Simulated assay, not measured.
Amino acid sequence: MDTFALVVTIGVALLFTYTNGFHDSANAIATSVSTRALTPKAALAMAAVMNLIGAFLGSGVAKTVSEGLIETPHGSKGMGILFAALVGAIIWNLVTWYLGLPSSSSHALFGGMVGAALAGGTEVIWSGVLDKIVIPMFVSPVVGLIVGYLVMCAILWMFRKSNPHKTKRGFRIAQTVSAAGMALGHGLQDAQKTMGIVVMALVIADVQDSGDEIPVWVKIACAVMLSLGTYAGGWRIMRTLGRKIIELDPPQGFAAETTGASIMFGSAFLFHAPISTTHVITSAIMGVGATKRVKAVRWGVAKNIVLGWFITMPAAAVAAALSFWLIQLTFG
């Protein structure tokens, strides 16, 4: 029964990664597709490869998820808590995907973990939640907005005397690099989040002694599922990011992607903080768009996205808590 519970929980974790691909992998390549710097097929192929490479670049974010947010629960009840956390996150991911709202898969997962832990009587490490989740949740979009604005201002100043058509053509090529950076950063960040969950499941099932080591098969499985999710359902989110917030041109797309990739790498390597790809790229697009003129950004769409940010963790927490209670009611 324990082995069966472990297999099911890992399967659900990989399903979560797949739904994550609906949201966050799409975020990584949306700007390049919308500016026609890359065709959808080329962008997806590039994102798949870069996600895979990014998954092998570090383990700090995975350790934060597996050890820094809730105390590792034990036994069948512990596996139930982990299962319920993933179900809560998946439910919220599917709801927001259907609505085309680029909410954060990361914060859906964290909300699910906290909600399930509270429902199951497992200790929540509130200092870790505050330092690694809540503070970065507020800081990263602000940084993305400001840095995106400054990077775009620098590009406008540096190329102020150049031929606009040649400049756009050049940035369309440069976007291949910036989009690769975004996809690499996404693999580094989001593949690791699911790795942390899978490793926690292995520890609960006594298959692994601690969360210090991440098996190679876990890294590959998480990266592959992330890529498959992108291919299956990312187009709704791409339309929101690429067109509905602001009409992007190649220089703007390059500025937004460069900003997003830089922040994701910095947070992963310097702070081991699992930040949201959605938050970073969306705020960077807003900052870039504001250089055109403030009214160029469709703030009504932006407002709905920001609202989604704030309700994601509580909504996923409630869904996870209800899932845990249902599991307890059904299986004892």
Results as ranks from 00 to 15, higher is better:
M1V: 11
F4K: 00
A5L: 15
T9E: 02
F16C: 02
G21R: 01
F22S: 04
F22L: 02
H23L: 05
S25F: 03
S25N: 12
N27K: 06
I29G: 02
T35Q: 07
L38K: 02
P40D: 02
K41F: 13
A42M: 12
L44V: 14
A45T: 12
M46F: 06
A47K: 09
N51V: 01
N51L: 12
G54T: 14
A55R: 10
T64K: 05
V65Y: 08
L69K: 09
L69M: 07
I70R: 05
E71C: 05
L82T: 15
L86V: 13
G88Q: 09
G88H: 05
W92I: 11
W92C: 05
L94N: 04
S104R: 08
S104V: 09
H107V: 01
L109V: 12
F110W: 04
G112V: 07
G115R: 10
A117M: 07
G121N: 04
G128N: 12
V134N: 00
I135K: 11
P141W: 14
V143A: 15
G148A: 13
G148W: 07
L150N: 00
I155Y: 08
I155G: 12
L156R: 15
R160Y: 10
K161M: 06
H165K: 14
G170C: 08
R172S: 15
V177E: 10
S178A: 14
A183I: 11
G185A: 03
H186P: 05
G187R: 11
Q189Y: 06
M195A: 05
M200P: 01
A201G: 13
A201Y: 00
L202I: 01
V203E: 00
A205Y: 00
V207G: 04
Q208Y: 00
D209Y: 06
D209M: 12
D212Q: 15
E213R: 12
E213I: 15
E213Y: 15
I214F: 09
W217Y: 15
A221W: 10
A223I: 03
M225W: 10
L228E: 05
G229V: 10
G229D: 11
W235N: 14
I237A: 09
M238K: 10
T240S: 12
K244D: 13
I245H: 09
I246H: 13
E247D: 11
F254P: 04
E257L: 06
E257A: 07
T258L: 15
T259L: 12
G260W: 05
G260L: 03
I263S: 08
A268V: 06
H272K: 11
H272L: 00
P274T: 05
S276K: 12
I285F: 02
M286D: 06
G287K: 03
V288G: 07
R293I: 01
W299N: 06
I305C: 04
G308M: 06
W309M: 03
P314Q: 02
A315R: 02
A315M: 15
A316W: 00
A321H: 13
F324H: 10
W325S: 08
L326V: 14
I327S: 07
T330F: 14
F331A: 13
G332R: 02
